[in-house]
């Protein structure tokens, strides 16, 4: 058993747990976004940050990924932590402030407005959908693509996924209702083959419902490929 202190309270937990688990099981409230009980922790949203006391001063860590250590002294609600959560919430509001979940999350840390301006997008890149598809469903039809401000969730090459089983688990775990099946298996698929571009007809299900291809315009060529 590991003995640690959270906000002054001494608690004991089994080795291998995270600070977040230890805190929640002992009644401490820590806000989270990208955390989901059925998924491995990601540590991406930074809402769950806590302070760990170290000989060189306080250290900020993501409690969802940080393992419990014997003798650790943890603070879940210092000024620094409040400040960091506030900035994270403000950035989230700037991006997805139109979604109820983000509004509620921001409100829970005392934030209701934002000084930042970002392109609006319901997807906050929490990766719950990606992790759900990989870990719960076992398929991994979608992943994070690109980096920086181009980062997004997409099937490989942004082409209609052949592996998606349309179970809608991703839709269910998305906190902001940002993803729908259309994003993964849309009806049209464009395959770029130099020098021509062929637009495929409706092939959402499988490759052999040929009768569904028939309603394509004269300009497009339907090539099975």
């Amino acid at each position: 058993m590991i003995a640690l202190t959270i906000d002054g309270k001494e608690i004991e937990v089994e080795a291998g747990r995270t600070l977040l688990d230890a805190a929640r099981e002992n009644g401490f409230h820590i806000p989270t976004l990208c955390y989901h009980e059925a998924l491995k922790p990601y540590g991406g949203c930074r809402m769950c940050v806590v302070e760990l006391e170290t000989p060189r001063g306080p250290r900020v860590v993501a409690s969802c990924t940080y393992p419990v250590e014997d003798g650790a002294v943890v603070h879940t609600d210092t000024d620094q932590i409040a400040g960091l959560r506030k900035v994270a919430a403000q950035l989230l509001l700037a991006r997805a402030g139109h979604t109820p979940f983000i509004q509620e999350l921001a409100a829970s840390v005392g934030v209701d407005s934002t000084p930042y301006t970002l392109p609006t997008d319901a997807c906050v890149l929490c990766s719950r959908c990606v992790r759900a598809c990989r870990e719960i469903v076992g398929i991994g039809a979608i992943s994070m693509a690109n980096r920086g401000s181009d980062r997004m969730v997409a099937p490989p090459f942004s082409i209609s996924s052949a592996d998606c089983i349309e179970c809608a688990t991703c839709v269910q775990v998305c906190p902001t209702d940002a993803i729908t099946l259309k994003h993964i298996t849309d009806r049209d698929r464009t395959v770029h083959m130099w020098p021509s571009e062929f637009a495929r007809g409706a092939c959402r299900l499988c490759e052999y419902h040929a009768d569904e291809w028939m309603d394509v315009g004269a300009e497009e060529q339907t090539v099975h490929g």
């Binding site: 052949a162 179970c167 499988c206 490759e207 040929a210």
Partner: peptide
């Protein structure tokens, strides 16, 4: 398919 091409069954 209609033209005889073989496909893998797409299983969901």
């Amino acid at each position: 398919d209609a033209a005889g091409y073989l496909a893998d069954l797409r299983v969901r």
